[in-house]
Design a protein around this nucleic acid. Structure first.
Lengths: 204, 204, 204, 204
DNA sequence: GGGTAACCGAGACGGTACGTCTAGTCTTTAA
DNA sequence: TTAAAGACTAGACGTACCGTCTCGGTTACCC
């Protein structure tokens, strides 16, 4: 999202590397994302309005529309740019451990207030494919790729069945957590642990 | 007021169970649900408006608000009252067969256009707990109960592991299908078949 | 409905003048008028709704519509059936005295809260000729006729100029009071007295 | 929010008197008033809706509500901004002539279709003091002031009685015309002429 | 005393308009 | 050229009443 390049109009200053005209205000960007996060603690994604964000951030609506295509994009940006949603995990000892770690991390990310917000974003995205695409690219893709690698590795080193279909396996791994999320059920360590136990049996 | 004794106008008729006043128009109800279904083939759940339904059904807005608390309730009613969504399955030969049948039926119900509509309803419900409750009661509960019974039976007759946690098992069974639904991936017979294969191994 | 012609159904009883069927409920009528009066102390004529009257009177809306053609008719009935609006004055000693009495009585009737209600009724009637007709017949006609008689008598006995145009004279007599009413100015004894003084000079 | 300092965006420009932001659209304003006038030729003031005006003018409802507090304000604006309602009269030879001219002008303004509209506006205003205030300021005040000046002048130069109460005199002058207006009687040159004849006698 | 006609209350019906809200766009001045 | 401000069209929201209708049920007259 951040430094989206877009067009090359009006020359460039050779020395400073700056473009002509007023530069983009980084403080406005920060204010918008911060305002969005704050507002999300009190309102649902659907009820959150661009106008409210603009007002809270002390920013014109146009400024928001200039940098993000729609409401969902702003929210996705605001939510998933938070450190808690970064998908960095230590290199695992085994594929099994890696998958276990992935599920548990996901479970923690989707629990509590944060989980609710993600559910609402995901819910909102059901109506508009473009928003869903952004959600997937920003949040889901990473998890998907990690799991894919782990599964392939596990199949090669004998941890998992060789004839295991990777795509299906990923559905079975991610599905239960997301199902609990969208059906309004609690997600906590006990739950993720039990799911993991059951699943790992399957993959062998 | 004064001497206006003249009978007590029978709040509710004890015998017939009828209330005073003009009775609800069944034809209006039908028109509303039918209009909703028709409009959903061209519009998304979010973009569908009560006003459009009223206009299409030739009905006053008030009539809709009188009988349903909100848009989602109307849509849930319209969609899930269709025969395709009834959860009637023949008594299975075994718990395994029963679960397989449930997954495949669910897969068929959530494929194609119908699936998209359900996804949008579910998405919409993420913002409002009341809507989610309606969705669960109307659609999910039945599937949940059926699976619960089948799993218990399977545990008793030795088809499934005795220490299997029923709730977790259900999450793992329903999760993958719903995950594909809300992440915008195709759901078809091949997919459900592969998921079923993988899962049934787990439950033993 | 169907076979309309046949027989002459019950017409009217020759002797008693009663029709067949349940007679009009006098208690309902009273309740409606009373409720209307009560509500008018808190609401303006325009904001007063038939539904509110029906509810307050414990009466079906149909009953109101059966006996009065519209809201204004009910209100006119409710307001002008009050004793304070009866136009009974003692026989005057002279035409001059009679007119003076008429103006002062009118002034008293159109002062304070009652005046406001009449102004609102009159205001409402500007939009619908039928309502205006009812207002004139119920309230204005009497005053008009009385003044007309007094003026004719005055012309005959020499109190007023013989060439005085009666219609114009009435406009000039009633006009000032009503003008103050609708332009929101106070109407009290001082005002009516001053108007009377000025007018009576004119008529000679 | 944080360090979003960057200038104070100049609430109002001191020199040009312009505010920040897009200025009011004069063409929308014209379209609204024009649409209102057109619609008033077919509908009564009460039945005229803001929605109809907005639609006819090709304007959002919000734009109307932004600039006028209510329906009556729009209509008063639309009606009384017409040249026919400007109160410009040549300097009269005498106070008597001046008052005669005022009455006749008023009579012409309140005759026919225009008169009906004014009556409806005035009627509507009976329910809401704010609307009445606007009506008085926009239409009545001018006439009132003119008459007041003429009467004072007449009293000084001996045309009228010195002890004449100005306020009462104005009530007596304006009253008859407005009374005919709101009681649905014709207003034409004959009528105004007769009223004038009668009144001018009084004032001496 | 049974028939029947007009009444009654309750309240649902198709509509219209309200005044508010938000979306996404447009137009201005200032930086 | 971008920013903030704020006006613009468009259209849905949920509410309030309108005047009509359709029920079950109640009188009061008529034969």
């Amino acid at each position: 999202m951040s430094e989206a390049i877009q067009s090359v109009p009006t020359e460039t200053n050779e020395e400073t590397g700056r473009k002509a005209g007023r530069p983009r205000s980084e403080s406005s960007k920060r204010a918008i994302l911060e305002a969005t996060r704050r507002l999300l603690t009190h309102t649902s994604v659907q009820k959150l309005s661009i106008e409210a964000i603009a007002k809270k951030a002390g920013v014109g609506k146009t400024t928001i529309y200039r940098w993000w295509p729609n409401k969902t994009a702003v929210i996705v940006d605001a939510v998933f740019s938070q450190p808690a949603f970064h998908n960095i995990l230590p290199t695992p000892n085994s594929a099994t451990d890696g998958i276990r770690a992935q599920i548990e991390k996901l479970g923690r990310q989707l629990s509590g207030k944060n989980g609710r917000v993600v559910a609402e974003i995901l819910g909102d995205s059901q109506a508009e494919p473009e928003a869903l695409r952004i959600f997937i690219e920003t949040f889901l893709q990473d998890r998907y790729n990690s799991l894919s690698s782990l599964l392939e590795a596990g199949k090669q080193n004998g941890e998992f069945a060789v004839d295991l279909d990777t795509e299906t396996a990923i559905d079975v791994i991610l599905g239960p957590i997301f199902f609990r999320l969208i059906s309004g059920q609690v997600i906590d360590d006990t739950v993720t642990h039990q799911v993991t136990q059951l699943l790992l049996k399957t993959l062998r």
